[in-house]
Design a protein around this nucleic acid. Structure first.
Lengths: 185, 185
DNA sequence: CGCGCGATTGAGTAATTTCAAATCTAGTGG
DNA sequence: CCACTAGATTTGAAATTACTCAATCGCGCG
């Protein structure tokens, strides 16, 4: 069960057995059922979560009740309300399960602890954040440069399996188009 | 001249004099004139740049010649083609000066070196990347949730001084609206 | 004065949204 | 096996938003 986590870390930076044994206990397994909330708007956010199994969405709901998906999170992805997590504020988004899920939850304090204690882990999270940053830049460019069709095609190219796992309505909420427009391709 | 840099680091994490003296020489001062390129599409990107003075833009130009601004960079901001910088690929965007500029340039290898050598610096860049990530998430939400007017107002609220420093045409290229639409407020 | 750049304005067009209705599909219980 | 239902998808038509193209205006500066 920890194998996936270790493999994930070591895609960036190798860890010794001792290092991994040290950090492993800070991750707490949580199992959630489809439709269950991992983070709810207004709550305090002390954890981020590594997805072992399943699929989640992090989404913002505006005044008119319209939902915008900030990110999906499938196996080997991380998810949280990162604004609230890093800035110690209350959640402004929801995170819930689109499928039954298993996640490994890591608290902010434990994260800082292991980053400072084990340089390789600090390195991992630094690189990970850098890669996340460029991924978001790509999405911004997609939103600025592409129309609905272009964005849809880019999404399918990037995550072909998403289409099999979520209804198109949900993809529309990620792309920033109405479900009707998406339906007309 | 290095005072700004040190102050910038220490907004996140304190450094000893020895630590700062160690990292300082890795930053090379570069002065650029308005309209000059810091990074050009197609080139290799070995550096990121800390802005001491001036204002730059990082922008993508699509097939039809339309420009989309990925980020502005004013005093105390960092700028590069981060996709190319982190992934060691060729630049896909341009970075040029909207005003005469002074930047401190740091190479990727030196960055990694000082991050590994001085944990506080690694910590700084990790936190910085995290904050950058949530800033981009906010921009994505803005693009998904707000119309042209809403995005313009949010931008003015966030960076009131930008309006004094760049023509509205340039703001339009950041917001993803035509200059005519922006002109109609 | 006249040039050049940026801002504005108008009119027509294209893309997308909204609202509404119809259709399809998978899962459930009889 | 079939009927029923909830969710998802599609389709239509009108309304809205923003874009494009074009012309005009305003201002600072050589």
């Amino acid at each position: 069960m920890s194998l996936e986590l270790r493999k994930h870390f070591e895609e960036i930076e190798a860890l010794t057995d001792e290092e991994f044994e040290f950090i492993r206990p800070f991750f707490k397994l949580r199992k959630l059922r489809k439709h269950q909330f991992l983070i709810q708007n207004g709550s305090e956010v002390h954890h981020e979560h590594f997805v072992l199994k399943g699929l989640l969405r992090a989404y913002y709901t505006n005044d008119q009740g319209k939902e915008h998906i900030l990110q999906f999170a499938m196996e080997n992805w991380w998810v949280s309300d990162y604004q609230a997590f890093f800035k110690h504020t209350h959640a402004t988004i929801n995170v819930d399960c689109l499928e039954d899920c298993e996640v490994l939850s890591l608290s902010f304090d434990d994260r800082e602890l292991i980053c400072r204690k084990i340089p390789s882990v600090g390195h991992f999270f630094r690189i990970k954040a850098n890669l996340g940053y460029v991924a978001l830049q790509r999405r911004i460019l997609s939103l600025l440069d592409q129309d609905a069709k272009g964005r849809y095609e880019q999404l399918l190219e990037l995550y072909p399996n998403l289409l099999q796992r979520v209804p198109k309505t949900t993809l529309a909420a990620y792309l920033g188009v109405s479900r009707e427009t998406l339906s007309r391709l």
